Computed example of a mutant assay.
Amino acid sequence: MSRTWLPTEQYAETVMKATGFACVFFTDEHDRPLQLRAVYSTTHPWQMAGGTMDPGERPWQTAVRECREETGIDVSGPPRLLAAVFGQPGQEWPFSTMGLIFDGGRLTDTQIRGIVLDPDEHDDARVLSLQEWESLMPARDFARLEAVLEARLTGTATYFGTWDWEQD
């Protein structure tokens, strides 16, 4: 049986389309996660510092840039991966989503008070216990947060493959 190989341009039209993102996960010194409240999303109201990759960027570059833009915090490497995240497309977003979440470490109270939010993106930054976050987040966002915190606490990166774009 012989195969017929498509020209690159034709083959590219047949494969899955995806957007990439990268985030930085912070906690306070008591391992309570820091989350930012998005002004532009009711679907994902509380988020980690991060965002969509720009063309030509690598995930760590995206995480560092987005964190600086959204919080004023400059993170430095080496990058420590906590999670790989995948989501299927849905009505809200027509592409699959693939992202990496990096460990930003534990912030002091002074560092947390010094966060400078970009008002076009976020209007609040909170540090809460995992239990307190559960009632404020959609189930899939909370499950992702829980998995990322577990990865941080155990030192074992996680794969979170169910961050789909369908409604909870």
Rank of each mutant, 00 (worst) to 15 (best):
S2W: 07
T4L: 12
W5G: 11
W5N: 14
Y11Q: 10
E13D: 10
T14K: 15
T14P: 00
M16C: 04
K17L: 12
A18L: 08
T19G: 05
G20Y: 03
G20A: 04
G20Q: 08
F21N: 08
C23W: 00
V24P: 00
V24W: 02
F25S: 05
F26C: 02
F26P: 12
D28K: 05
D28A: 08
H30N: 14
D31V: 00
D31E: 15
D31K: 05
D31N: 15
R32K: 14
R32W: 13
P33C: 08
L34P: 14
Q35V: 00
L36I: 08
A38C: 10
Y40G: 06
M48N: 04
M48S: 05
G51W: 04
G51V: 00
T52D: 07
D54Q: 12
P55V: 06
P55Y: 13
G56L: 09
E57I: 03
R58Q: 12
P59I: 01
P59L: 03
W60Y: 08
T62N: 03
A63G: 06
V64G: 02
V64I: 03
V64S: 09
V64D: 02
E66A: 11
C67S: 15
C67M: 09
R68K: 10
R68G: 02
R68M: 06
E70D: 10
T71Y: 10
T71E: 07
D74E: 11
P78L: 07
L81E: 10
L82M: 01
L82K: 01
A84G: 07
F86I: 14
F86E: 15
G87I: 08
G87R: 01
P89N: 07
E92L: 06
W93H: 12
P94D: 06
F95I: 01
S96Q: 08
S96D: 12
S96C: 10
S96H: 14
T97M: 09
I101R: 02
I101W: 00
F102S: 03
G104W: 10
G104C: 09
G105W: 08
G105P: 12
G105H: 04
L107G: 06
L107N: 04
L107Q: 04
D109W: 08
D109K: 13
Q111M: 10
R113N: 12
G114E: 12
G114H: 05
V116L: 05
V116S: 11
L117H: 11
D118Y: 02
D118F: 01
P119C: 10
P119F: 09
D120M: 13
E121W: 04
D124T: 12
A125M: 03
V127F: 02
S129L: 01
S129G: 06
L130P: 00
E132N: 11
W133P: 05
W133L: 10
E134P: 15
E134G: 07
S135D: 02
M137T: 03
P138L: 00
A143M: 11
R144A: 07
A147K: 09
V148E: 02
L149V: 13
E150M: 04
E150P: 07
E150A: 13
R152P: 07
R152D: 02
L153M: 14
T154N: 14
T156E: 03
T156K: 07
A157Q: 15
A157R: 14
T158M: 05
T158Y: 00
Y159I: 03
Y159W: 13
F160H: 13
T162G: 04
W163E: 12
D164H: 04
W165C: 03
D168C: 00
D168S: 01
